[in-house]
């Protein structure tokens, strides 16, 4: 379920760009208009032409409104799995996680050499970012629905501040996915291959005992 997101989101962003670029009047300028000024052209025309994203709106919409269902189903399935398996205990932030996250990030950026706080499978920063990305996934689906059927689902559109606002949020969530992906891949690469194999196979190597294993704990107690 984790891996399926990669091809699904790739198609969603690719088809989304086809829709995004259908309006030649730089919709992103409109998209962030509520902040009050124009930031930048996300994709200059030249890049857009090289990617072959011009004049492909109909195909873009068709893919977007097809794969959106698969992305939604996958997300719902993952949510159910987290709930039924108890996996959420590894994932959801705890009350200490925010403080832990700050320490972990400071350590990763080599700003601090203080010892890291205790952690389970995921540290505080991971708990927060992995939970946040799930929430963003849900927001992507809900803002998507509210710009897909703004009249039939007008209550949902209103919840996100109207059609244009929902559309802006939809773009920002997309940018967040891309940013998350880049940091995520970098972190996985830094964590090494043993960790990568575990991501793929779903098993852990016996010699790589997690921090806080009962044996280490009892040793710590006796010491």
């Amino acid at each position: 379920m984790h891996w399926i997101n990669f091809p699904l989101l790739t198609i969603m962003i690719w088809s989304g760009l086809r829709i995004y670029w259908a309006d030649r009047a730089d919709p992103f300028g409109v998209g962030i208009g509520f902040i009050g000024w124009h930031w930048f052209d996300l994709f200059p025309d030249s890049v857009n032409e090289k990617l072959g994203l011009n004049q492909t709106l109909a195909r873009g919409m068709a893919f977007h409104f097809t794969v959106a269902w698969l992305f939604t189903l996958n997300g719902v399935a993952y949510g159910l799995y987290l709930w039924r398996s108890g996996g959420w205990r590894h994932l959801l932030p705890e009350k200490e996680s925010l403080g832990d996250a700050a320490k972990v990030v400071a350590n990763d950026l080599h700003l601090s050499t203080a010892p890291l706080p205790p952690q389970g499978r995921y540290n505080g920063a991971q708990r927060w970012s992995y939970t946040l990305i799930l929430v963003l996934g849900a927001v992507a689906v809900l803002t998507g629905l509210s710009i897909y059927k703004p009249t039939q689902l007008s209550f949902l559109t209103a919840l996100f501040g109207g059609y244009e606002m929902a559309r802006s949020i939809h773009f920002f969530v997309t940018l967040s996915f891309v940013a998350f992906f880049i940091v995520h891949i970098f972190q996985v690469a830094m964590a090494g291959f043993g960790n990568f194999w575990s991501m793929i196979s779903g098993y852990e190597l016996e010699s790589e005992k997690p921090v806080g294993d009962s044996q280490t704990v009892s040793e710590a107690v006796s010491a």
């Binding site: 389970g120 499978r121 098993y203 016996e206 704990v217």
Partner: peptide, 28 residues
Amino acid sequence: PSLAREQRYAALERGTPRLDEVQFYQRS
């Protein structure tokens, strides 16, 4: 309290299947 957290995390991991090196790389 940090010891309590470590114990809690350890208990959580007890359900994770662990494999020896040969099995692990075979599965991978």
